[in-house]
Design a protein around this nucleic acid. Structure first.
Ligand code: DUT
Ligand code: MG
Length: 787
DNA sequence: TTCCAGATCCA
DNA sequence: TGGATC
DNA sequence: GGAA
């Protein structure tokens, strides 16, 4: 136990250092999916790049998102997200600390579209104070052997007569008591003076809302608010002498200046763990930087590696370029530009050693290959040393890994450390696979809806979910899927997964995600995500993707068109009918439906259905059937004994819809059954409805199901989607096919597993029998929550 | 290395 | 046919 | 990104 803690401390320290010097170097790779799509894109490159044409075994197309050009999204236009009318609330946060002493506060997921304060002026205090003597306490701190300019003394403004007077003239007037969100909070501002007019406003504002402002380092400090131009390293350099410890006590909230702005705007203490409040760590290349170290070897290495990889990627890049150029003749869309956004950061980022330089040096030595006297602790650190790098080198795809990359020994050795573990695991997961199936199918083990608060992995899950959604936004289908699956297995765990090995053993968690889980456990957040969500266009993507019927492709078009707000779309963009409705009810559709309202909606529909045809049986499916506390929409199945075709229920549907519409319950139709000749498939109705007395529009789905297909339909409409896909994949492994109408056998698949044969229907009407035939133990709907 | 569920509806 | 959605 |  003790040992564990020590180890954790090491890792903690390791991560701190890593953060300090590695920081934002994360680069984003082109998305997997995008590449796959591009590769298989049959469209010949418009601009003669013969390279890209070489043999790609024609793949079955995927949820194909032929995203125009990813690089366009990545390219930073540095257009600040302007304020929008949409502001999602940031809920009150509850802060708890784990036994690990790391903050694992777990705020609700939320998006915040906000106008960031645009104080353009930034005054970094002048290096030389007129008077070095200042407050006793500050003075007594251990001297930093850093350039004095970084010292806090330099910042303490000598009270200026005029200013003093001025401040007196404007005494702080407190807001009404119950609005004092900062009541009881003691805030230490950096720089610790109010010389700057913007900061002064910020400070007085905070005080209006109940804050206590301290210029000295006192034990009762609850918040440190840092001007945005200060980097983490600088701050640590300033604070260490004051704190007399190497790290900031975890009960102190360290955030940038956006924090107070948002708090005051939202009249609430916002979740301080959001990435927008994190103090940036890349160190600007300014003169005042101290002891420049020789280029940190690992870093240099990474850059090299990256370059080599990029070279290898060229085919892809070409493809991408040509793809891009087909869309728009912008020559500046060189594929290089996207990595280029990142590389300079890495390059420019000086390998500053902020935390006490003395302690750092051994590590440097080691990194340099000079076996200095390393104690085991450092050795331990080194063991993990390359992991995260390995982690963010990512850059999936094929070519690099295989052959002897130019990568020097360093990298090789580090991977050496990793490999044994991986082998172990692979064997493990492998070995069971003997005949049929393993834990590889979530449908076998089922999922749990430990709808936490109590789940020990709550925080980790939240972050991984964000990762998944981020990749979703990037149209990286498969990573999105992987992270979702990982969340599913994590959710089932009864214990706090905090180490690599622990995580690595679990299904759907591999090397990369295990590493990230450990990072989250230790540091409380993920650099990858912090950086990713910082991309300016990510906010816009998030915003536009929130519109019903707007997906990644449309959203990027909007962005490329230069739209910044929903109002831009309203006035300028060309939208489909559904999108228009989605836009008009952006907030409505984003609002979840509490279970009791679901029930109420259900009653209304059932009551209306009965007089039309008492034999029709309405069933609420979707997340409601899985027992969810709230749902994103309401899903109905209508079935009737004796029916064999969805068509048999059309009369019912049209009657139902027209009646519900005339009562005002249904407010619009978004998609209606298409009775395509010959095929009687047309079976679903999508629209919106309202609960009487409640203005919020709700999404509503109807599915017409003949009795003969009710089993399969129930499985389908009960979900969740991950569960469904798992079942279907399992079926396909058994040469069967599962869809919303039934389970089919003797399916033949051709090259690329193309469906040659419809297969023979085995079962469609009995939900449980379908499970049986597939060899899946029955799962109650509540246990089909796998995401 | 290859695959990752399978289908409906609309423009 | 591609895009979005279930 | 994970499994086979
Ligand atoms: O990609 C998908 C999406 C959904 N479904 C099935 C499972 C799901 O349960 C059902 C209803 O879809 P919906 O989008 O309503 O999901 P939900 O499970 O009901 O969740 P929510 O609470 O968001 O409505 O359709 C799939 O098979 N594949
Ligand atoms: Mg639903």
């Amino acid at each position: 136990m003790i040992f564990e803690e020590e180890e954790m401390d090491d890792k903690d320290e390791y991560f701190r250092q890593l953060y300090a010097l590695n920081d934002s170097s994360d680069e984003e790779e082109d998305t997997n999916n995008a590449r796959e799509i591009l590769k298989q894109s049959s469209r010949p490159p418009s601009s003669s790049f013969s390279v890209s044409s070489h043999s790609f075994s024609a793949r079955r197309s995927q949820p194909s998102k032929t995203l125009g050009n990813i690089s366009a999204i990545h390219r930073t236009t540095s257009a600040p997200a302007s304020s929008t009318s949409v502001v999602r609330e940031t809920p009150l946060l509850t802060r708890k600390s784990s036994k690990l002493r790391y903050d694992i506060s777990t705020p609700e997921m939320n998006q915040t579209f906000s106008a960031s304060t645009p104080p353009t002026l930034s005054s970094i205090p002048a290096p030389a104070p007129q008077r070095s003597v200042s407050t006793s306490e500050l003075d007594t701190g251990p001297k930093l052997n850093m350039v004095p300019s970084a010292g806090i003394n330099a910042m303490l403004s000598k009270p200026d007569e005029r200013k003093k007077r001025k401040r007196k003239e404007t005494p702080v007037i407190l807001v009404p008591e119950r609005e004092r969100i900062f009541a009881g909070k003691t805030i230490f501002f950096i720089p610790p003076n109010d010389k700057h007019s913007v900061r002064e406003a910020r400070i007085t504002n905070a005080m209006k809302y109940g804050a206590t402002w301290t210029k000295k380092w006192t034990p009762d400090i609850t918040h440190i608010i840092v001007d945005k131009e200060y980097k983490f390293e600088q701050i640590m350099g300033m604070l260490k002498p004051l704190m007399k410890t190497d790290s900031i006590p975890q009960n102190i909230i360290l955030v940038n200046d956006k924090y107070t702005v948002d708090c005051i705007r939202d009249k609430i203490l916002v979740d301080e763990t959001q990435s927008r409040y994190i103090i940036r760590r890349d160190v600007p290349v300014t003169e005042e930087q101290e002891i420049r170290q020789p280029a940190e070897p690992r870093k240099a290495l990474r850059i090299q590696r990256r370059k080599s990889k990029k070279d290898q990627d060229t085919p892809d890049d070409h493809t991408q370029r040509s793809e891009a150029s087909t869309q728009s003749q912008h020559p500046q869309d060189q594929p290089d530009s996207s990595p280029g956004v990142w590389l300079p950061t890495t390059n420019a980022e000086p390998p500053v050693i902020v935390e006490s330089p003395r302690e750092r040096s051994p590590m440097l030595d080691v990194a340099l290959g000079e076996g200095s006297e390393l104690d085991t602790a450092i050795a331990e650190i080194m063991r993990f040393g390359d992991l995260p790098l390995d982690d963010d080198d990512d850059e999936e795809e094929r070519p690099s890994s295989s052959e002897g990359n130019t990568d020097p020994d360093h990298d090789g050795s580090s991977e050496e450390d990793l490999r044994p573990r991986r082998r172990t695991k692979k064997r493990k997961k492998f070995q069971k696979q003997g005949d049929a199936n393993s834990a590889a199918y979530v449908c076998m083990t089922g999922g749990t809806g430990i709808t936490d608060e109590t789940n020990p992995n709550r925080h980790t899950i939240q972050i991984l979910e964000k990762m998944s959604k981020y990749y979703g936004r990037m149209s990286d289908t498969w990573r999105e899927l992987s992270y979702r699956k990982a969340c599913g297995t994590l959710r089932k765990q009864g214990v706090w997964i905090c180490t690599f090995d622990q995580a690595f053993e679990l299904p759907f968690i591999g090397e990369r995600i295990a590493t990230k889980i450990e990072e989250i456990a230790i540091t409380g957040h993920l650099r990858r995500l912090d950086n990713a969500e910082l991309e300016p266009e990510d906010h816009l993507l998030k915003l536009f993707l929130g519109i019903y019927n707007v997906g990644p492709v449309e959203a990027s078009k909007f962005i490329r068109a230069g739209y910044k707000t929903l109002d831009d779309l309203r006035t300028k963009a060309r939208l489909t009918k559904c999108q228009q409705i989605g836009l008009d009810h952006y907030d409505d559709f984003a609002t979840r439906i509490p279970r009791d309202q679901m029930t109420a909606l259900g009653e209304i529909v059932k009551a209306m259905a009965k007089p039309i045809d008492p034999d029709v049986n309405p069933i609420i499916g979707g997340s409601y059937r899985r027992g969810a506390k709230d749902s994103g929409d309401i899903d109905f199945i209508f079935t009737k004994p004796g029916t064999t075709h969805a068509h048999d229920l059309h009369y019912f549907l049209s009657s139902l819809v027209s009646r519900l519409t005339s009562t005002g319950f249904l407010t619009c139709a978004l998609a209606t059954p298409s009775h395509r000749r010959d095929d009687d498939s047309g079976s679903k109705w999508h629209g919106a409805c309202v609960l009487p007395g409640n203005p919020i529009w709700r999404r509503i789905d109807f599915l017409l199901v003949p009795e003969s297909e009710i089993g399969a339909a129930l499985i389908y409409f009960t979900g969740d989607d991950i569960f469904n896909r798992s079942m279907r994949l399992l079926a396909s492994r058994k040469n069967m096919r599962l869809n919303q109408r039934g389970l089919y056998k003797d399916l033949m698949r051709g090259p690329g597993r193309l469906k040659l044969n419809e297969g023979e229907l085995v079962e469609g009407s009995d939900e449980k029998r379908i499970f049986e035939i597939l060899g899946v133990p029955w799962k109650k709907p509540e246990n089909r929550i796998c995401h």
